[in-house]
Structures are given as structure tokens and as C-alpha cells.
């Protein structure tokens, strides 16, 4: 599903965020990317969705080298990937339903079917009663779950999450972790950048340190 082949990422003026990273993630696998803050976890996820481009090596997603993708091809890559961002990036002038609807509007999904899917996604993260609520009216945990609903509403084969349990209390974090595990159980490949690895027992772990992958 994902293959990194000697990937490096250098930001100007010469800061190496990642250097010589190689690994593979199989389909239906659940993998944690862990490491200290600034180890390059977020950068690694951004390379997969081509939010950033590698400065060396190849990033293959579904057999496609995404670091060489033309700008016009990026949207079609991102539609196949569900992303949960570290800062969630919810739209605060739209209610929960509309936030989750956005990816489906983008792909031009038929409206009635889209509405059903949005409700199903909200239901899966336990927010079906809050669909009219604006994000500011939601608690931190609810906002995180809303971000997850938006990431999965397009039913992607690949789900990327950047620190999805940060800033959450222990119970809520466990709840969010459970949702990811459920998606993995139904066949979604899940890649999570986190330093709360103990929330996901049994998942393979990629350990990053100063931009290098530890063996």
C-alpha cells in the first residue's frame, strides 16, 4: 500500500526533517509512527498525501510515486486518502454535518446518497445527535471525532492521522483509539503518528529519531 524508498526531506536552508527512510506498509495494516516531538512524524504523513514533496527517494502510494505527481493530479490522490490533521482543520462556520459533507461535495457525490453517508459516518463516531452543532459547540473529543468522521466519509482505503489523541483526556483518547481500530478491522490501512503508542497495542511501530528510522 505504502512504500518509502530511501526518502529524505530537507527544508531550506538545510534542515533534514527526514533522511534515508525506507519502509513498507501492507494493505489492511495498522502502523504507528512514533518518536519525540520534531522527529519527523508529521512530515512523513505529509509526504504520503503529497502535502509536502520529498527531496530525495520515492514515496509510493498504491504503486504510484506521489512525489512526482503533477499539481493537477494531487486532488485525485488525496481523495483516496482519509486524513485527520493535528490541528483538525474543521471549518468553524459550518455545522458538523456540513463539515463531514465537504469531501463528498468535492468529489461530486450524488446528494441524497451523500447525506446518508454523512449520517452513517457521524453515527460511527457517536456524533449522530450533534449534526447541527457548530464545531465551537463541541468538546475537544467531539471535535476530534468529527475530524475522523470527515476523514472516513469518502470510505478511503488509507487513513492517516497526525496525533489524533493529543490534548484529550485518557478516556476520550481511548475512545478515539478504539474508533481507529474499528476502521482497521473493516480493512482500512491505518497510519497514525502518535507518541501515545500504548493506546494501540499490537500495532506495528515505526520509531523515528531526528529524522531517521530506528531499526
Amino acid at each position: 500500500m505504502i512504500r518509502f524508498d530511501r526518502v529524505s526531506k530537507r527544508y531550506p536552508p538545510g534542515v533534514d526533517a527526514l533522511s534515508d527512510i525506507s519502509f513498507e506498509v501492507a494493505e489492511r495494516e495498522m502502523v504507528l509512527v512514533s518518536g519525540h516531538s520534531g522527529a519527523g512524524k508529521s512530515t512523513l504523513l505529509k509526504l504520503i498525501a503529497a502535502v509536502e514533496k520529498s527531496t530525495g527517494g520515492a514515496v509510493l502510494v498504491g504503486g504510484q510515486n506521489v512525489s512526482g505527481l503533477a499539481r493537477a493530479a494531487l486532488p485525485y490522490l488525496r481523495r483516496r486518502i482519509g486524513m485527520v490533521f493535528q490541528d483538525q482543520k474543521l471549518l468553524f462556520d459550518r455545522n458538523a454535518f456540513e463539515n463531514v459533507m465537504l469531501p463528498l461535495s468535492i468529489t461530486g457525490f450524488p446528494r441524497r446518497e451523500a447525506a446518508q453517508r454523512v449520517r452513517a459516518a457521524l453515527d460511527k463516531v457517536g456524533l449522530s445527535s450533534r449534526e447541527k452543532a457548530l464545531p465551537v459547540m463541541l468538546s475537544g473529543g467531539e471535535q476530534q471525532r468529527l475530524a475522523i468522521a470527515r476523514a472516513v466519509v469518502g470510505r478511503p482505503k488509507l487513513l492517516l492521522a497526525d496525533e489524533p489523541t493529543a490534548h484529550l483526556d485518557a478516556d476520550t483518547a481511548a475512545d478515539v483509539a478504539r474508533i481507529f481500530k474499528e476502521f482497521n478491522h473493516v480493512g482500512v490501512t491505518v497510519l497514525i503518528a502518535t507518541y501515545a503508542g500504548d493506546l494501540f497495542p499490537g500495532a506495528r511501530r515505526l520509531q523515528l529519531e531526528h529524522g531517521k528510522l530506528l531499526p
Binding site: 493537477a72 494531487l74 486532488p75 485525485y76 482543520k89 471549518l91 468535492i106
Partner: peptide, 16 residues
């Protein structure tokens, strides 16, 4: 700005 950024991350084309 946020909406533009988020839409792009979610796979919106420039046209959208």
C-alpha cells in the same frame, strides 16, 4: 483561507 486550504487537502481541484 482555512476553507481553501482544507478543501485542497481533502482533494478539491483548483476549479472546485
Amino acid at each position: 483561507r482555512t476553507e481553501i486550504e482544507v478543501s485542497g487537502l481533502l482533494g478539491a481541484t483548483d476549479g472546485f
